[in-house]
Design a protein around this nucleic acid. Sequence first.
DNA 1: TGTACATCAGTGAACGCGCGTTCACTGATGTAC
DNA 2: TGTACATCAGTGAACGCGCGTTCACTGATGTAC
Lengths: 237, 237
Amino acid sequence: MPAPSDSYHHGALREALIEATETLLAERGAEGFSLREVARRAGVSPAAPAHHFGDAAGLLTAVASLGFEGLTQVLEAGDARGGADPRAALQQQGLEYVRFACRHPGRFRLMFRPGRLRDDPQLERHGRDAFEVLARGVRRLWQVPHADAMTARHGNAVIALWSMVHGYAHLAIAGKFGALEAAASRDGFIQATLVPGLEALLDGLLAANPPASLSPQPARRRRGLPGPGAPAAARRR
Amino acid sequence: MPAPSDSYHHGALREALIEATETLLAERGAEGFSLREVARRAGVSPAAPAHHFGDAAGLLTAVASLGFEGLTQVLEAGDARGGADPRAALQQQGLEYVRFACRHPGRFRLMFRPGRLRDDPQLERHGRDAFEVLARGVRRLWQVPHADAMTARHGNAVIALWSMVHGYAHLAIAGKFGALEAAASRDGFIQATLVPGLEALLDGLLAANPPASLSPQPARRRRGLPGPGAPAAARRR
DNA sequence: TGTACATCAGTGAACGCGCGTTCACTGATGTAC
DNA sequence: TGTACATCAGTGAACGCGCGTTCACTGATGTAC
């Protein structure tokens, strides 16, 4: 890789512009983004970005796309950390989702506001990839073999989990959790307030729709009484 | 009230500006808002808004504040529709929250993005008012007499419910639920996909933390077996 | 009922600004022979 | 190894634009007497 020198050619301008955009988004959000400011920060003329990204929407789209790639990575890392337990894996995914948003609020908002983005197949693909990590986690929990075998209930479970972490993330970066800013450990606060909700949601979802292996007494369930293996209490620590 | 005539004085410019802002937000979002465009739409000179709102942030703050008032109203209406059943009341609140966001996406996003808003006591008060409707609903479910008597668990329940509807709302207006746009009845889609999640969450929250009246057998619960009155199954229809 | 006057509400021209994008250009790099 | 040349990457001046805000102003309204 050519060293970014003080020569006429920057050498790694594309990366530098993306990085400058990230910082600018972090500082001022998507509202405060401007192509000229990014060029300024990269120490380059205002016309330079056009060379690599066409226009402002192109640069933002690239950043959003990379954002989804990064999100996919941390979700997968969280999933892996959950190990063999699909519940734990989903919880870790949820935590990572929220941490990602808190670490990169501007980028996170950008990724989910199509206004300033271009229609781009790569962006869509990376968005779907991130979503698929969650969907796979849900499938694992209910032992659904492939995406085609998902029922509306599974779909609703995905929506519910996604909504919860997405909403938590948005509220957190909007400053709606006053105690978050004041907390000694922000990550501690997140865990203490997000995990109980995820636990409860997973409890409820599993109770309403027990996976085959967890419901050896369908007759009792039909009468409305959870069996001894009912997840609500059994899994609570 | 003076009739909005074609005379020199508009008569109801304040209201007209707010209305124009609402439409503009609906059309272009907070990104596309501009004071001049609002003035143009209200058929008034660009300097006129300053007279009523000081500056752009003042106008947006007023709109956001009214937005929270409106949100409070629909939440209360939903709560009332739930009648004596605190679960139903919370569900209806959740539905109203999401409907509000879908009806006024620009306004909704504005309300939760402090970037363009002014620090304003009235805005904060109206925001807290809306939040309090939800908190009251949760207190009713657990029969908590006043706000001071809420435990961390109650607080986490509020966070979980709020996160779920807030996240659902954001994802819906970001176009992330592809099937929403295509649905014959958008409200039908919302109900079919949001309510199961809310049900499951409430089930799980109640199972983890049963209200006094619903848990006559604490001994069994301590062994990890929900009693016959366990909410997860008992309340499912 | 009429008049003087203070107050209010909106005008419209002007300001300076930062923006995205364009354009002809030029300096550096790499490749063919 | 050297030279010619095509290609690439960035320049910097310029464009036109819409913006928020200011200012001295003026038309309408309402109140005191």
